[in-house]
Amino acid sequence: MPLLAILAATAVFCAFLLALGRSPASFFQLVWTGAFGSWFSWRNTLSRAAPLLLTALCVAVPAQLGLVVIGGEGALVLGGLSATWAGLQMGGAPGPVIQLAMAAAGAAAGAVWLGIVGVLRARRGINETVTSLVMAYIAIALFNQLVEGPLRDPASLNKPSTYAIPKAAVLPTLPGLDVHPGILIGGVACVLCWLLIARTTTGFAARMTGGNVRAAQLQGLPVAWLMVGACALGGALAGLAGMIEVAAVHGRANASLVAGYGYSGILIAFLARQNALAIMPMAVLLGGIGAAGGLLQRRMGLPDAAVLVLQGMIFVAILASETLYGRIRWFQPRATA
C-alpha cells in the first residue's frame, strides 16, 4: 500500500518537474547519487536519518493509543536547548557524565512538553493534534527567545547561538565509520519501542485502548495514564533527538536545530504505518532524499524546497491511500485466513 502511494506521488512529482522544464530522470539519478551514491552521501544520509528515527517514534508511540501527536518539533528543540543548558552547567565533569546528564535533560524536557499534551487530552478531552501543534510553535518561540536572549553567547553575531558545550561532551563518531552514534541510538530506540508495543502487557493495554477505548475502560485499564505516558515517552524520544543534534552535530543550540525533523518524522511514521520497525528503512529513505537536497540545488538549479515538495506529495498520497483503502475495488479487504 505505501508503495503504491509513493509511486503515485512520484508520478505527480515527475509531472511537476516536467512543468519546470527539468528532466525527472536526472532528478532521481541525482537523488540516488546524493543519498546513497558514495560513502560520503551515505554518511550524510545516516546522520540525517538519526533524528528522524526518534521523531517518527514520537508520532508512532502515541499512535498506538489512537492519538495523533504532530508536535515532535517542539519537543526536539526544547530537548536540544535543555541538553545544551545541562552541558553548560556541568563544565568540568568527565565526558560520559556530561553526555548522560544532557540526554536526561533533553528527554525530560521533551517528556514534560508533550506530557502536557497528554494530560490535556486525558483530563480535559482537548484534541491532542491541535495542542501538540500549537505547543510546537510555542516551543520554537521560547527557544528563539532564550537563544537570542539570556542564553546567548555574545560572540555569536549573525547567527545567535548559545555557548558551545564542553569539548568532552561532544559525541564521538562510531569507530571506523565516521558516522555519529545517533543512528545507533535511534535504531536501538526503534527496537525497544517495538518490543514495548508488541511484546509487553503495557503495549497490549495501549493497543487495546487505541483500538476501542470503551473496551479498555470496561477492563478497568488506566486509560488516562496510558495516554499521558505514551505522549511523554514520544516527547522524551524527540527531546533525545534534540540532544543528539546538539551533542553530535552542532555543538551548541541555535536555529539550525529548527530544521523540520519533527515534521518529517510525522511523514515517516505514517509511511511506516506506525510500526516501530518499519520506521527504520523509511527514515533512511527520507534521510537520503533530504541529503540529496544540496546536490540538487547545485547541479539542477532546483530550489532546496523541491525535495520538500516531493515529501509533501508523498504525504498527501499516503493519507489519501489510507482513506481510499477499502473503497477502491482492488484494495477491498481480503479475508485473512
Binding site: 493495554a205 493497543r207 483500538g211 476501542n212 473496551a215
Partner: peptide
C-alpha cells in the same frame, strides 16, 4: 463496547487476563 474490532480473536479473548 466489549471488543477491539481490529485485534485478533486470540487477543480479544485475552482482553481481561492478558497481564
Amino acid at each position: 463496547n466489549g471488543c477491539v474490532p481490529g485485534m485478533s480473536v486470540v487477543d480479544n479473548l485475552n482482553l481481561r487476563l492478558f497481564d
